[in-house]
């Protein structure tokens, strides 16, 4: 029943993908080799000029730096924090069911709503964060969380981490609950140290789901748009201008559709490189373990 003819089963999916992804993608690739302006059907073929322009441009290098900083730092913190909370939830403590249920909320919250909520919390004058931190004497004076270039990206990252570390925690917990209780207890009774137990019993169970979670997060953070758009639109002084915000600005505010397309494609290349590097690193790690 799985003869050659069964390949027709792929038809609906690939027809759909070709229509909504393939065809637009081809057009974008073509656009990236032209000087097309938004609203004009065609532009002149300019070869690799858009790409060359990007690599020479200070704006692109800056946006690249912002994107990679944001991606690596949020993913790293989310993974560590999520792993720790996942381990915590696996301990025999009362009330962990409640905590687990609460963790669902940030994860399910739409990104735009999360961004809006944190923008209000970070508000320099009437925001809750400044009020809380000054009233508990942690900081002396109100700060401009989203207006200070040294703080803005970190503040956005904070909002993103708050939303996403629960996802990692739940994934970790799921992996842990696949480990038979007897195995955990056996390792405990054998007198294996905490590190040994982690490495031999826990890590194998959570490695794969965590790796998938990390890949998904790297992809999402390289694409990051919504949260920055709602919170700062790339300011102050471009401190939060990621590649996606730059693509938007070039293509829609300036009308440089061709250049925008080139930068968008470069951001995909960066995703591929980062994920490739990450996979290689984790594979090497598991091989040596």
């Amino acid at each position: 029943m799985l003869g050659r003819r069964s390949l027709f089963l792929l038809l609906p999916l690939f027809a759909g993908l070709a229509a909504v992804i393939g065809w637009p993608l081809l057009q974008t690739v073509w656009l990236s080799f032209t000087d097309a302006q938004l609203g004009d059907a065609t532009g002149n073929f300019v070869g690799l000029a858009n790409y060359a322009h990007a690599f020479r441009s200070h704006g692109f290098r800056h946006a690249l730096g912002v994107t990679i900083t944001f991606s690596l730092s949020t993913v790293a913190i989310e993974m560590v924090l999520g792993l720790l909370v996942g381990l915590l939830l696996d301990l025999p403590l009362r009330g962990r069911g409640i905590l687990r249920a609460i963790l669902i909320i940030p994860w399910a919250l739409p990104t735009v709503i999360n961004a809006m909520a944190w923008r209000v919390i970070y508000n320099p004058d009437f925001g809750a964060l400044n009020a809380l931190l000054t009233q508990t004497h942690i900081i002396g004076a109100y700060r401009s969380w989203l207006g200070d270039p040294g703080l803005a990206l970190a503040s956005i990252a904070g909002a993103d981490i708050w939303k996403t570390f629960p996802f990692v925690a739940l994934v970790t917990l799921a992996g842990l609950q696949n480990v038979p209780r007897e195995l955990k207890e056996a390792a405990y009774i054998d007198g294996a140290g905490p590190w040994m137990r982690f490495k031999t019993v826990i890590l194998p169970a959570i490695a794969t789901p965590l790796m998938i979670a990390a890949v998904l997060r790297i992809i999402d953070t390289i694409k990051v748009f919504d949260i920055i758009w709602v919170m700062t639109r790339g300011g102050p002084a471009n401190a939060t201008k990621s590649l996606s915000i730059m693509v938007y600005e070039q293509a829609f505010s300036f009308g440089n559709a061709g250049y925008g397309a080139a930068i968008a494609l470069l951001s995909v290349a960066i995703s591929v490189v980062l994920i490739g590097g990450y996979m290689r690193a984790t594979r090497a790690q598991t091989a040596s373990a």
């Binding site: 004058d125 109100y142 401009s144 207006g147 200070d148 300011g235 102050p236």
Partner: peptide
């Protein structure tokens, strides 16, 4: 100093 993150509505 918060002016650097204000729009007109702020």
């Amino acid at each position: 100093p918060h002016s650097t993150e204000y729009l007109e509505e702020d």
